[in-house]
Amino acid sequence: MIDQAWRALIAAVILIPASLSPAKAQAGPDAVGFYKSLEADGRIEFNRLVANANAEKEKRVRAGKVIVTPTNERAAMSAMRMMMYNKLASIGVCADRFTGERDISRAGQAIAKCAEERNQEAVKWYKLTDYIETVGESKMTRCEMKARDFKNEVRFPAFDFLIDDRNPPLFDFRIMNECIMSGM
């Protein structure tokens, strides 16, 4: 379980700045090429987030506000990798929807809108995790299974810098949120 101190750091990954916007990706011959063009900027952004997380951790430790255990730190890093992967892969998934668009400007706008909508679903999911005790871990696990996007995990695999002891999962957070909210 990730403690509250790390939750804020993970939230920073969800709200990745415009440096990783779909418009910045180089248009490739297909969505996979488009996705791959995000790797260098994604790595830079992830390293910046890790550096910020480490600085925040040290600040909290010095202030005596949190004791960081290796387990908490591993869980937080894994969650940050998963969220960064989902952010980047969502751009690829959205690019796939608009690869036939001949107007580059229109395609870029459509991809950006799609990626933003997917990101908003990730933000909603993140907020719903505050209620895991109410929803129940069993239901959360079932919803994760239902929302896992195996097909696109193959098409848009995680970049090496996002893999720790296992590949991060790719989720359709809209499906996840609908599942979590069902029966409420």
Rank of each mutant, 00 (worst) to 15 (best):
P169S: 15
G28D: 02
R74K: 08
K124I: 06
A53K: 12
R174K: 10
R166C: 08
W125I: 05
I14A: 09
V66P: 09
K127L: 15
R74P: 04
R102P: 05
D149H: 01
G100K: 13
R102D: 11
N52I: 12
L20W: 01
I132C: 08
A18H: 14
I16P: 04
V61K: 10
G183K: 10
D165E: 11
G42I: 01
E39N: 06
A25F: 06
K151G: 04
M80F: 00
F171Y: 15
A79C: 02
V50Y: 01
A63M: 11
A51R: 00
N54M: 08
A53F: 10
K139N: 03
L128K: 03
E101V: 02
P168R: 00
L88N: 07
R81P: 08
G42N: 00
S19D: 13
E56M: 09
D96A: 15
A107Q: 15
F161W: 08
G183W: 00
G136Q: 04
I14R: 07
D103N: 15
G42F: 01
M140G: 03
T129F: 08
N47V: 11
I132N: 14
R174I: 05
L128A: 13
R166G: 08
K24M: 04
N86F: 05
F156W: 09
M77L: 00
A75M: 07
K57L: 13
T141H: 07
Y35R: 07
R102Q: 11
N47L: 14
A31N: 11
I163C: 02
P168N: 02
N52D: 15
K87L: 10
A107I: 09
G183S: 07
A55G: 04
V123Y: 11
G33E: 04
V154I: 12
F150G: 05
V93T: 05
N167M: 06
N54C: 04
S37I: 00
L15V: 01
R142T: 08
G64K: 08
A122T: 03
F161S: 10
D3I: 02
M82L: 01
N72P: 04
A158F: 01
I91C: 07
N167T: 09
K59V: 03
V32H: 10
E117R: 04
A110F: 03
R7M: 06
A107K: 15
D160H: 11
V154D: 09
A158M: 04
F34T: 11
A112I: 02
F156C: 07
L128P: 06
T141C: 06
F171I: 09
N86R: 00
D3F: 02
T141G: 09
G28H: 01
R74I: 05
P157N: 15
A95L: 08
R62M: 03
P22C: 03
K146A: 13
K65P: 05
